[in-house]
């Protein structure tokens, strides 16, 4: 944890989320209390269905809780007002998804440009791609890149707007070890060099070793919240 900067950026209290999947009611979150600090690297650990993606979506302004309070700095994230949440995402949040969600009809550079074009103080797309080690693949379409490369484009796209928080949903979930590590290095580098508060959700326990703090979820509740004083570099990880 960066003890010198204990500013709280996210504050969540009593967050629950229930949604309807077909005919089934899913209780994704059953009362979550949470604080996240500026510049810290947090890993949310949990099995599939533990509620971690739901929590991330709520933090990112993609969804709102059924009950409880969530705030980012002075933004209230519990009211679904599309224009407000859209602005919040545009100005503060960078997303990385498990399945990259690149626009298939745009090249790497253009996928990044898609975001930089609507940001006020972005990196230039080339710079962002350089940061994730893809300076050479600027004009490739998603279909012409490997999964790891696509995910790194997604990271470049997420950080190019210099977000205040970077939210990554299983960023290595679809990747093998080696490419996974390259992707994690890219995320770590962004956290380190730009000081972006970073939240990575994963079910992979090993990735937790590179975090400042590890939060475990099960059945929609936080079951542990531990600082990790011995933060490892991604290259030291294996799974």
């Amino acid at each position: 944890m960066h003890a010198s900067t204990p500013n709280i950026v996210f504050h969540a209290e009593g967050v629950t989320k229930t949604y309807q999947m077909g005919e089934v009611q899913v209780h994704a979150l059953r009362g979550v209390d949470l604080e996240l600090y500026e510049s810290e690297f947090v890993v949310l650990l949990g099995a599939s269905g533990s509620g971690k993606s739901t929590l991330l979506n709520i933090l990112g302004g993609l969804d709102i809780p059924t009950s409880g309070t969530v705030g980012y700095k002075d933004h209230d994230l519990t009211v679904y007002k599309d224009s407000v949440l859209t602005r919040y995402r545009r100005e503060h949040v960078g997303f990385v998804f498990q399945f990259y969600n690149l626009i298939p009809s745009l090249t790497a550079r253009e996928n990044v440009a898609l975001v930089t074009e609507i940001s006020t103080n972005p990196l230039v797309p080339e710079e962002a791609l350089e940061l994730v080690g893809l300076g050479e693949r600027l004009d490739h379409f998603p279909a012409q890149m490997s999964g790891g490369e696509q995910q790194r484009v997604a990271i470049a796209r997420a950080i190019a707007k210099r977000p205040d928080v970077l939210l990554c949903d299983e960023p290595t979930g679809a990747l093998d070890l080696k490419t996974g590590i390259v992707v994690l290095e890219a995320i770590e580098r962004v956290n380190r060099e730009l000081g972006t508060t970073t939240v990575v959700i994963t079910h992979n326990v090993d990735i937790a070793q590179m975090a400042d703090r590890v939060i475990r979820l099960r059945d929609g509740r936080i079951i542990s919240d531990e600082a990790n004083p011995d933060r490892k570099a991604p290259s030291e990880l294996s799974w």
Binding site: L62, D82, T86, R90, I118
Partner: peptide
Amino acid sequence: ASLKAFGYDN
């Protein structure tokens, strides 16, 4: 959905 996640408005 992706476009919205990046902050494109409706």
